[in-house]
């Protein structure tokens, strides 16, 4: 029975998730310079410690990304990641709107390379006539010159899973806390609560 258990775990690569991870690892068929990692690092390492293999570096596990194309691509490739999931992975969409700290920001293919801080708010992904809406807590968005957009968030939920009544209740709770807060830390905590809940409220109603 134990032997079966081992083989079951070992044969797991057939499941779609694992195979996605396996293909993400660069092999010799892909661009050569990423498979060896940082060459200066390897050289330095070999000079000082010849008897241990140099450790791998993250770029060796990265899926290679295409160079910046000359013509404007028609689609935007989006990676939307959370600590516990990859919500969208290399998905080609028409447009995304992210809640940057400076205001809602629409990203189309060929957008200027940007690093944007995100605030709690509505993230919508437009694909044809389909619009997927998420509420994200906070994070970062990177837009690369090759029409790749990476959106990182700490927490995200699809908008239809939010309960309006709970949001209202939370909002009033935190407003009360804010008014009764005595220390700076408490005040800041309550202020964050109010901000998030009013953003939630706005996303649901507006």
């Amino acid at each position: 029975m134990l032997r079966q258990l081992t083989s079951r775990i070992l044969t797991k690569p057939t499941t779609p998730f694992f195979s996605a991870a396996a293909t993400r690892r660069p092999f010799s068929t892909e661009v050569a310079d990423t498979s060896t990692g940082d060459e200066t690092f390897v050289e330095q390492w070999k000079k000082v410690i010849p008897n241990i293999d140099p450790p791998k570096t993250p770029s060796q596990y990265m899926k290679t990304r295409p160079p910046t194309p000359n013509v404007l691509p028609t689609k935007l490739t989006v990676n939307f990641v959370l600590p516990y999931a990859s919500e969208l992975s290399q998905k080609e969409v028409d447009m995304v709107i992210v809640p940057a700290t400076t205001g809602q920001m629409g990203i189309l293919p060929g957008h200027v390379p940007t690093i944007a801080e995100l605030k709690p708010g509505l993230l919508s992904v437009h694909e044809g006539n389909d619009v997927k809406k998420y509420f994200i807590s906070s994070g970062f968005a990177f837009i690369h010159p090759n029409s790749y957009a990476d959106i990182l968030a700490v927490e995200a939920v699809p908008l239809d899973r939010l309960d309006q009544a709970q949001v209202q209740k939370g909002l009033s709770e935190f407003t009360q806390k804010l008014s009764s807060a005595s220390t700076d830390a408490e005040k800041a905590e309550a202020q964050i609560g109010v901000d998030v809940h009013s953003a939630l409220n706005f996303a649901l109603t507006g």
Binding site: G37, M62, V81, H144, D150
Partner: peptide, 28 residues
């Protein structure tokens, strides 16, 4: 335990990739 944590480790693999794409990999 491995079965439970393996899924979570694999799900977290997307998290560092944007940073490597943006800031590069600089061990040297």
């Amino acid at each position: 335990k491995l079965r439970a944590i393996q899924v979570r480790a694999e799900n977290s693999r997307g998290l560092w990739q944007p940073f490597t794409a943006l800031l590069g990999d600089t061990p040297s």
